[in-house]
Nucleic acid binder design. Structure first.
Length: 491
RNA sequence: GUUCCCUUCGUCUAGUGGCCUAGGACAACGCCCUUUCACGGCGUAGACACGGGUUCGACUCCCGUAGGGAACGCCA
């Protein structure tokens, strides 16, 4: 048990694309756990697949992780991408000499061997095994060759060999004490001799993962459930090398609405997409945390600090969870509305700029406008359509207003509204109410025949925030211009 | 096919043998607030996959069945 050692956890993405929400949740749990126990969170890059790993993807992943606020203490520096910490390098592609050393050791001890099987031979073996109803494992004729003999053969062989790990001959059970699944027992013959080093000299996941986790002194390994069966291979490597096992915690998988593993066809699966759609990092974290973990206080809305304080592996759920975007939206809306208005405005600003909105810069105005609008805002992006009516010169009559424009009293209301506007100076809430009353009396309209037309003359559509609060936020000239446009469109 | 994992309201979950006529949250529905739309408040409906054990007692423990998932790669 490694309970007394200082906690060290890691997130180890392979930079082959955007950061997936599943990965984000794993990283979040790592982060929360490290924070709770004052431990170290390390970011290691698993880029041994040179074909698929790109620098671009690495930067994307780092950006997404940073956006979520999941700061790591050790690993690849988020800005310079240089190594940061005492156990580097932190990119597996740069640790080749380390893996070679251990591979050599295993080769000499007889725990590994050069295998000269060609792809065709391996395929044939698998076919055969399948036909006989056996697990499709390779059985290499080279497993008992002397190292010298293999080395000699290597010089002249046409196939470049891989190095395979030699699984134990005697059948036994490996017992894993998983933090989320409890006791898991693997029969040793569950796996065949697996490749440790590729023919191009690059190590393979199960080999370098085990070595790095041990060398980087990681105490806890949280990762997705799909790695559960890999753990047997890694345990064998730990055993052969005499390393101490860390504590493993295999997290359940996140599913889509159809209960299949979450993938592209379910819509957005990368945190970057959610960022662009106007979700807040803390809301994202909050929602993701709840997908497989629950607060002991049954709290639903939590800050990062609250989550890390309450976090524990005992409350991790072993069943897979469906990613429910509706709930995400609710979590986001709740976080959004709790934000101080100056902060919220800053987050909204880029969206407004992108649309070219002309909105007042004074903070008092912004504060009032936000109080009015944020109750119907679920994402930052919703702010766009909400604030569009408030932007100078962006008035247009919505399709939804056409009904109102055809009502009999509408034209009268518009005309009166315009004349009253002309007579007034700065209109405050009370001022507007007075105007409304005047219209009511003089035009002899009430109910929605009164309110809807005025709203249409102000924002171009019959539904939205309270007009009496909206009007004081707008300039008289703008209001006049709009009312005139509305009047001209009466049918 | 083999091995491993999983199974409580539509969804996320609470539940560690009696507190469970199964609790909460999102969604749905209804009412209230509101001369619109939201927010908010209150309420209604809705689940232990199935079958055997064990036990005085099972959502909870054991065994099967069914369903779902994962792994069996020179991907991670």
């Amino acid at each position: 048990m490694s309970n007394d050692k200082p906690v060290r956890v890691r997130f180890a993405p392979s930079p082959t694309g955007y950061l997936h929400v599943g990965g984000a949740r794993t990283a979040l749990y790592d982060f929360l756990y490290a924070k709770k126990y004052n431990g170290t969170f390390v970011l290691r890059i698993e880029d041994t697949d040179v074909e698929r790993s790109t620098e671009e993807a690495l930067k994307m992943q780092i950006q997404d992780l940073s956006w979520l606020g999941l700061k790591w203490d050790e690993g690849v520096d988020p800005v310079t991408l240089e190594d940061m910490g005492p156990y580097g390098p932190y990119r597996q592609s740069q640790r080749k000499s380390i893996y070679d050393k251990y591979a050599q050791q295993l080769l000499e001890k007889g725990n590994a061997y050069y295998c000269f099987l060609s792809d065709e031979e391996i395929d044939a073996q698998r076919e055969q095994a399948k036909k006989e109803g056996r697990p499709p494992q390779v059985n290499s004729p080279y497993k008992d060759w002397d190292l010298e003999k293999a080395l000699e053969h290597k010089k002249t062989s046409e196939v470049k060999p891989v190095i395979r790990f030699k699984t134990p001959d005697v059948k036994k059970d490996y017992l894993l004490n998983d933090l989320v699944r409890g006791e898991v027992r693997f029969p040793s013959d569950m796996v065949g001799d697996f490749v440790m080093i590729r023919s191009n000299g690059m190590p393979v996941y199960n080999f370098c993962c085990a070595i790095d986790d041990a060398l980087m002194k990681l105490t806890h390994v949280f990762r997705a459930e799909e790695h559960l069966s890999n753990t047997l291979r890694q345990m064998m490597i730990y055993e052969a090398l005499g390393f101490d096992l860390p504590q493993f915690g295999h997290l359940s998988i996140i599913l889509g609405e159809d209960r299949q593993k979450l993938s592209k066809r379910h819509g957005a699966t990368s945190v970057n997409e959610y960022k662009e759609r106007g979700f807040l990092p803390d809301a994202m974290n909050n929602f993701l945390a709840l997908l497989g973990w629950s607060s002991p206080e049954a709290q639903e809305i939590m800050s990062m600090d609250e989550m890390s304080q309450q976090f524990s592996t005992e409350r991790l759920n072993s069943a897979s969870a469906v990613f429910d975007e509706t709930k995400l939206k609710w979590v986001n809306a709740t976080h959004l509305r709790a934000l101080p208005h100056n902060e919220l405005w800053q987050l909204l600003q880029p969206y407004f700029d992108k649309e070219g909105f002309d909105l007042p810069q004074d903070s008092d105005w912004q504060d009032k406008a936000l109080s009015l609008m944020k109750t119907s805002m679920e994402t930052l992006k919703d702010g766009v359509e909400l604030f569009r009516p408030l932007s100078k010169g962006s008035f247009s009559l919505s399709e939804k207003a056409s009904d109102v424009l055809s009502w009999e009293p509408t034209k009268r209301v518009f005309e009166k509204w315009i004349s009253l506007l002309n007579e007034s100076d700065n209109i405050d809430e009370q001022g507007f109410m007075n105007m409304q009353n005047t219209i009511k009396k003089e035009c002899e309209v009430k109910g929605k025949n009164l309110f809807m037309p005025i709203r249409v003359a102000v924002i171009g559509q019959p539904h939205g925030a309270e007009v009496k609060l909206l009007v004081p936020l707008m300039e008289k000239s703008e209001l006049l211009e709009r009312a005139q446009t509305a009047l001209n469109s009466c049918t």
